[in-house]
Simulated assay, not measured.
Amino acid sequence: MNNHMNKSDKKNETRVKLIIKLLPYLRKHGLQTVRMDEIAKVMEISRATLYKYFSTKEEIIGFIVDGFIEYMNELTFSPLDSDQSFGTRFQQIFEQSVSLMEYFTNIFLKELETSYPDWYDRLNEAMKQREQQVLAFFEEGIQRGIFNDINGKLLIMQDEILRGMFNAKYLMTNQLTVQQILFDYYHLKKIQLFKSEKLSVIDDTIMLPRIEHLTHKITKNLF
């Protein structure tokens, strides 16, 4: 039994590593036209090895969607038992929002809806549930006197601004860097949401390596 579980865990770990290699490619090229031999090449494995981990492209897409749903569900893990916990949850939401925006391009979502409607429905439902969790988080912060009384839906919609800004042409034309945009946007969201006397509950040093990691990932996909 334990040997079987260890083998399953090891296989799943390898599957995750292979998908991480594939995601930037799917982000740029979409889902519909990519073939299994292309997927194997991007993953840097043989086609025969690919079939040991994924039997079909549909299974790959399902694994990706399930992974993102699990990632979104992480929002519910930490309890809001102190003012500092609101700062931690805010940072988690910010990092998660940027990551999801980076991979859920309009092309990806459109092709998922068209070619894999069942998976799209599952993902869309999870995204709606996440939005409700974020809105509930904003409302609780307002009720506890930590957040400004602000429209949570507007804060969420602001994330769409980044989608247009993370464009190589836009960055070069405006002499901006991905890191600069992320830092500025993080501080903008923080100041909008938290009351001035509550800003001290946020430990910005925690976000520095996270923003650097996001910068590297986004820049790599842009150029």
Rank of each mutant, 00 (worst) to 15 (best):
residue 221 N to F: 07
residue 23 L to S: 06
residue 53 Y to I: 02
residue 84 Q to W: 02
residue 222 L to E: 08
residue 196 S to M: 15
residue 42 V to I: 09
residue 155 L to M: 14
residue 53 Y to G: 02
residue 21 K to I: 03
residue 109 L to M: 12
residue 128 K to H: 03
residue 127 M to C: 14
residue 15 R to Q: 05
residue 102 E to G: 10
residue 186 Y to S: 07
residue 56 T to K: 01
residue 66 D to L: 07
residue 60 I to H: 02
residue 82 S to R: 04
residue 33 T to P: 10
residue 183 F to Y: 11
residue 180 Q to N: 13
residue 85 S to N: 00
residue 197 E to R: 05
residue 25 Y to Q: 04
residue 69 I to M: 00
residue 25 Y to K: 00
residue 194 F to S: 04
residue 78 S to K: 09
residue 193 L to P: 06
residue 183 F to L: 15
residue 64 I to K: 01
residue 3 N to Q: 13
residue 101 M to A: 11
residue 148 N to Q: 01
residue 197 E to V: 10
residue 131 E to V: 10
residue 161 I to P: 00
residue 174 N to S: 13
residue 74 E to Y: 02
residue 71 Y to P: 03
residue 58 E to G: 05
residue 162 L to P: 11
residue 145 G to A: 00
residue 158 Q to W: 06
residue 163 R to F: 11
residue 93 I to G: 01
residue 190 K to M: 08
residue 168 A to H: 11
residue 184 D to A: 14
residue 34 V to T: 08
residue 94 F to M: 04
residue 221 N to W: 09
residue 157 M to Q: 13
residue 105 T to Y: 02
residue 113 E to S: 03
residue 171 L to T: 09
residue 57 K to A: 07
residue 55 S to V: 10
residue 166 F to D: 01
residue 179 Q to C: 15
residue 2 N to E: 14
residue 66 D to E: 01
residue 193 L to E: 06
residue 150 I to C: 13
residue 94 F to I: 12
residue 106 N to V: 11
residue 8 S to V: 15
residue 96 Q to E: 14
residue 86 F to V: 01
residue 185 Y to P: 15
residue 218 I to C: 09
residue 30 G to M: 01
residue 22 L to N: 08
residue 92 Q to Y: 01
residue 150 I to D: 11
residue 165 M to Q: 14
residue 100 L to I: 05
residue 127 M to W: 15
residue 7 K to C: 04
residue 213 H to W: 10
residue 169 K to V: 10
residue 157 M to D: 13
residue 168 A to M: 12
residue 26 L to K: 08
residue 18 L to G: 06
residue 201 V to I: 03
residue 166 F to G: 06
residue 33 T to V: 14
residue 129 Q to M: 10
residue 75 L to E: 06
residue 183 F to C: 13
residue 193 L to W: 03
residue 117 P to D: 11
residue 126 A to Y: 08
residue 60 I to Q: 01
residue 6 N to G: 11
residue 54 F to R: 05
residue 165 M to D: 12
residue 84 Q to C: 08
residue 61 I to K: 02
residue 97 S to G: 06
residue 130 R to S: 01
residue 29 H to S: 06
residue 164 G to T: 10
residue 130 R to C: 02
residue 57 K to C: 00
residue 205 T to F: 04
residue 180 Q to Y: 13
residue 100 L to K: 07
residue 63 F to V: 08
residue 78 S to V: 12
residue 130 R to F: 00
residue 174 N to A: 13
residue 39 I to F: 11
residue 66 D to G: 10
residue 159 D to F: 12
residue 11 K to M: 03
residue 129 Q to D: 14
residue 166 F to N: 03
residue 205 T to H: 08
residue 185 Y to K: 15
residue 48 A to G: 03
residue 163 R to S: 09
residue 137 F to Y: 08
residue 184 D to C: 09
